[in-house]
Design a protein around this nucleic acid. Sequence first.
DNA 1: GAAATGGTTGGCGCA
DNA 2: CTGCGCCAACCATTT
Length: 510
Amino acid sequence: MVMAQATSAVHWFRKGLRLHDNPALLDALRSAQHVWPVYCWDARLVTPQAVGVNRVQFLLQCLDDLDRRLRERQSRLTVLRGDALEVLPRFMRERQVSLLTFEGDVEPEGRARDERMLRKCHQMGVQVHSFATHLLYDPDRVIRELGADELPLSYGPFVARVTEALGAPALPLAAPPETQSFGTPDTDPQAYAVPRLEELEAYRGMTATTPLKGGETTALAVLGAFLSERRDEARQFSKPHTSPTAFEPASTTQLSPHMALGCLSARLFYYRVQELHPLRRPPVSLIGQLWWREFFTTVAYATPGFHSMKENRLCRQIPWSADAEEQYRAWEGGRTGHPFIDACMVQLRKHGWLHHLARHAVACFLSRGDLWVSWERGRDTFDRLLVDRDYALNNANWMWLSCSAFFHQYFRVYSPIKFPQRFDKEGTFVRHFLPVLRNMPAKYVYEPWKAPLSVQREAGCVVGRDYPYPIVDHEVVSKENLAKMSEVFSRERRPMEKFAKKRPRPECVE
DNA sequence: GAAATGGTTGGCGCA
DNA sequence: CTGCGCCAACCATTT
């Protein structure tokens, strides 16, 4: 069958904000003479309630960078304002576009939107080519090859079975060269420009405070620098041994926001890191981190209602406090009276980023460790404030830390005092993010309420006046909560039992 | 099917 | 500095 050559195509950017390793973009360029690179900006979805100002800035930087790189290729990014399902079909109709390409989304809302766009395109007679390039492997293919009922729910078997069934990930593709013709027809530069933060009505008066900078150019530079300047670290990388209290520089790559938005291709990361061999092995290695992303995203992809305790079949039902507004507010606002927890929450708000282990500590504290608040609330806070917000990773890790799924050793409780002391005896991290504790002696910096009043006065930080009293006594509540968890585990049905697997036994063949 | 094993990243007391 | 048992008996997977 001979396919009619599409003369005009739109490549629709959503995640996958990059030119390198972008098969959907290359497909548009191959199939059409005129290619519009398009991004849809829906002001109804980008509000301070849903997306913190730090992430908005990061996203806008990504779009600016894309636009810049496209202009180097005599093209540009066309930003359409409004609901993608309205504005994109209209745009395509007006310009007689006959092909739409994009990277298929992996999260539920994005998948539903893609599905609706696909139907609209069918009605309009527009071809759609979508590519599964957010992960190392196409999750549909992984699920098909392994079987939806056979998808391992633990990391090791997942990595082993995917590798065994699918082999090495596909090699990353190069970006279109600067000589590549996009043939993008002129569009009104004012109407379709990348928005500037200052012009967003909903964010009026807000200023981003994150040092993280978005965009493919930055992502590639950060990766390159980490792999060359911190080569030995990259080789030896073992996540549990990196420090949650390190900042400027952080003890990890901080590439997560770029991975979340696809400024950096997972496959490029995989093969660039692989070059460093010999390497430490998963799960703790750098590539091991990428496999966690692969694992959680694929499981989330295969699990309806993944983000909901009630609807997610993998999630344990735990009777979290019904009325915990005050506790939750104190946690979110960094006013728990536990300096490490509060400092982490300040860093989260300020930088839109926390070290993975710091996320563990605050997540454990909010949920099963101390405050007994549902992981869904903490998840919402992270969703809003994290620059690297990722549907699957955020939900999975909250379930992990709250012992709702994936992780079950509920007697392992993070201490808001002992845990940070392992990494930062002096309290440098806490002093930086909570300047009120700057002069507190190291002995009391994680538990200032224990300092004699004279010491508090000397340090210029009197607990109850300059810094809150602890809202809970960790020693007491963590024991009480452990007992509650013990009861849940013994009394409640195990999450999977509700859905006892009825896998037909293979019949004996005569 | 029962038992053993291992599980990215706790904390404590003890040797 | 390391390792072990305990906390209380977790889950997923393998044998």
